[in-house]
Write a protein that binds this DNA or RNA. Structure first.
Lengths: 344, 344
DNA sequence: TTGTAAGCGTTATCAC
DNA sequence: GTGATAACGCTTACAA
């Protein structure tokens, strides 16, 4: 005969207790609380009343366990305090919330090991799916393949890995760049420089392609001299500016990699006694709100919609979870970037 | 005789399967995997080997359920995309991570109903504890009392409710304000204005008190005319500036509510053809990194350490969860703010 | 309309 | 050193 272990009773009432008090079975209580059709009105109200009285609340951990589903999605991002990602999380959380999902959070700090540990932990938590933006230096993707094998769908966004079979959402900067260069051309600029990012980045390639396409559209010749790859630091930007301003063909406008680079470039131009928006005009990316507070914000900036990217990624995950989209139906949603004009 | 329901088998192997394959009992498997002392080396290795082979991973949902503990903490914040809060989350997540806790996230958008729903959802998720920064308009605290009743500890931070028995972490702005005013006085400023926030905010009161204390320290008379309460919008700030500049006593420095207000105030001053840091000097709060990119950043800014506040709140929650600190031992950790000087 | 009991995966208690 | 089994709270197929 085994000892009846004393129930630890977390204090929280259970359906068992409700059942005992009403002298009915737990299944009846369960069904009553779920508004099951086969339950008599009288019993139903009695149950609900007592449940309310006892402050009953269902134990989700039991339900998760029993149903093998947690209504939780894992989010893995490099850095929560980066403006781009915090907007993205905001979009993810809002969308998840309205689909009755909650959000488990982890930041990798661009560290591959930590990334693996977080994925591991999310897998153990039995999240229903994941939304991931990979770290700068992540080179092996085994941890994500483990997730796939465990049939946990993953949607990558913004920083997506170079793999064939993945679900992803990202923002194509090509169209935004075309708009940006169009904008400058319409203002009469003909010699337009570009301070681009490291050549290796997908985002840099998209910018360059957009730049060239826009010129071609206007039947203008593309001069490779005018695009310079920089490292996005303040000094790198100053050097790039120095180079561009030293060219024989007089540059009257510059497309910069992002608003921060634009600010650094503006500082350099001011030192050279150039008048912003007259001697030289800047256009950039990200549309960071704070750049509105600077003395000389870029004349226009390409919005990359982090909040919307977060929404799109979450929606895609939701259709994967609902079965609406098959797990092996790999989709790559590409959002279009868009130029926002601040000053003509 | 009841039908043996076919196991749905989420695909993930269980200790049961391992036991069957090795012809031993589940308890043995469980113990082997936990390195229980009473298990023979042979069995232990056999079990571990097979487990690895089968890609066995323990089902945390089962363990959470069984142990009544989830190693998850809930975080409720007004707005994830606000720089202050995203730094705070970053600190919370890092600390939680190193204590083997994961983080469940929710944003209230300053909406009281959503706040209640999120708390409800976290309670249902059976989080072990919560870290909360309340919404602007939250006036009833029943939802938090429910948590307390359910013995789920809550640590409030930054935006803390006006209640007697709570755990909290916040940053006292009084000392930072004293430093800020000291700084200006040492530079020779004697007529110092202050654009403060709404009178109702605790943070506004702390700023005003600090301002007055600093003057008293230097045996200077406090002129109430010099403190103006504004609504933190750009137009509100412009009005406040107009008022301050209209005073008979010539204001040469202004303490603004935060860096954004400072930027707005700078814009107004520039329009009035005032030279920044010469005709008028600004000092503010938050030490937002981007203000470094503006043409005229405040000469100094009071750092409020969001990351560290997040850490402190998480550490406090950890000691509550470990029992190191009793649930009814209400502590209010007050961090000191600190002036960061950008320009002399 | 309601009750009975199996089963989800794990741990822990007890017996051998 | 190992096995059998209760218990955690809930849902649900089946019986009554």
């Amino acid at each position: 005969m085994y000892c009846m272990r004393k129930v630890v009773s977390s204090g929280q009432p259970t359906i068992k207790e409700i059942a005992k008090r009403l002298n009915i079975s737990v299944s009846t209580v369960s069904r009553a609380l779920h508004d099951h059709h086969s339950i008599g009105l009288r019993t139903k109200t009695r149950v609900k009343q007592l449940a309310a009285e006892m402050n009953y609340e269902r134990n989700q951990t039991a339900i998760y366990f029993q149903q093998g589903k947690t209504f939780t999605i894992g989010i893995l991002l490099p850095e929560l305090s980066e403006a781009f990602f915090s907007s993205a999380i905001s979009g993810i959380e809002d969308t998840a919330y309205s689909n009755n999902y909650t959000v488990l959070l982890g930041q990798s700090h661009d560290d591959e090991d930590r990334e693996k540990q977080i994925i591991q932990s999310m897998k153990q938590h039995r999240v229903d799916g994941c939304i991931v933006s990979i770290g700068k230096n992540t080179s092996s993707y085994d941890h994500f393949e483990m997730l796939q094998q465990a049939r946990i769908p993953v949607v990558f966004f913004d920083r997506i890995p170079d793999l064939p079979n993945i679900h992803s959402v990202s923002c194509n900067l090509e169209s935004g760049t075309v708009q940006a260069v169009d904008f400058l051309l319409k203002q009469g600029h003909r010699i337009i420089g570009m301070i681009n990012g490291p050549e290796t980045m997908v985002a840099s390639k998209e910018r360059a392609t957009g730049y060239i396409k826009a010129l071609r559209k206007h039947r203008l010749k593309y001069d490779p001299e005018l695009i310079v790859n920089a490292d996005l630091t303040a000094t790198g930007t100053a050097e790039a500016m120095q180079y561009l301003l030293s060219l024989k063909r007089k540059v009257t406008a510059v497309v910069t990699f992002n608003d921060y680079v634009a600010m650094d470039a503006v500082q350099y131009a001011l030192k050279q006694k150039l008048e912003i928006n007259k001697d030289i005009t800047f256009v950039s990316y990200a549309n960071t709100p704070v750049s509105g507070y600077t003395a000389f914000p870029p004349a226009a900036s390409v919005e990359q919609f982090p909040y919307e990217q977060g929404q799109a990624a979450t929606n895609m995950l939701m259709s994967l979870l609902s079965g609406e989209q098959a797990l092996n139906d790999y989709k790559h949603t590409i959002m279009e970037s868009q130029l926002v004009i601040h000053h003509r």
